[in-house]
């Protein structure tokens, strides 16, 4: 193991360099074939083979320079067009103050990802959440059940192609808009009026009378549009100047 002469890079600012440095260290250990840098938004390490995830993660945890002792979060991302699902790990190190994101990509049809619960016990609940909402199956997880939705829930709601069930235990999942009832009332009134041969009610106007001297800005605008020639010299000053000339 190389003794670290240089100070570990601290995440002082929002610059991407610290994460790139961390990725370089992972790449130096596992080679370019194992990990890839995804730099589109923020530098993220992609572990190409899910089977190698545990190996890479334990390196991130045990390496004295990286020392990621805290798993902040595990999330899932669904990419239906790519036909893949990603499991994303947000890591933080209390020892160095650095943070890094690692992700792994698996096919949508078979979203099996090894669990990192043995490295960070907090992953237990995070992975249950990702399983619950995105449907990632974490292999060798000690207790892979739904964590928030009921046990008998059908489907994983944060999948892009999730379709809501028409009911849950007989409780309908839709509710009519109250405005529909008003529209129905309007239709019924109109039908009644027409059957009686009555005239439609007068259109209601605003009961508020404008104060004296008030000019409707819409009318003003329309007026300005009709005579565009005087536009550059608008205002009383311009008029005076014209008169002088």
């Amino acid at each position: 193991m190389a003794a670290s002469k240089q100070e570990p890079v601290r995440a002082k600012s929002k610059t991407r360099e610290p994460s790139r440095a961390i990725h370089a260290r992972i790449e130096a250990r596992f080679g370019e074939g194992a990990v890839a840098l995804e730099d589109a938004v923020d530098p993220v390490t992609l572990v190409r083979d899910p089977k190698q995830l545990i190996e890479v993660m334990s390196f991130l945890k045990t390496d004295p320079e990286l020392a990621f002792d805290f798993l902040r979060s595990v999330t899932g991302t669904d990419w239906p067009k790519l036909g893949s699902i990603e499991s994303v790990y947000h890591l933080y190190s209390y020892q160095t103050g650095q943070a890094h994101v690692v992700k792994v990509r698996v096919p949508r049809a078979r979203p099996d990802v090894p669990s990192v619960e043995r490295l960070w016990p907090t992953a237990n609940w995070f992975e249950r959440e990702a399983f619950d909402l995105v449907g990632i199956r974490y292999l060798e997880h000690s207790d892979l059940r739904r964590i928030m939705l009921p046990e008998d829930w059908i489907g994983h709601p944060l999948r892009k192609d999730y379709v809501e069930q028409p009911d849950y235990h007989g409780i309908g999942t839709t509710r009519a808009s109250p405005l529909d009832a008003f529209a129905e009332l309007d239709r019924a009134r109109r039908a009644l009026r027409e059957a009686r041969g009555e005239a439609p009610p007068p259109v209601r106007t605003s009961p508020i009378t404008p104060p004296e001297g008030w000019v409707d800005p819409k009318a003003k605008k329309a007026e300005a549009k009709t005579k565009p020639a005087s536009k550059p010299e608008a205002g009383s000053d311009a008029g005076d100047a014209k008169g002088d000339a």
Binding site: M148, L149, P157, Y162, E164, I171, G172, T173, T174, R175
Partner: peptide
């Protein structure tokens, strides 16, 4: 009626259901 969250998959659209 479910209020702000009535379009959420997990929220019951009113207790009168």
């Amino acid at each position: 009626c479910g209020g702000l969250f009535q379009l959420a998959y997990s929220v019951c659209k009113g207790v009168d259901k």
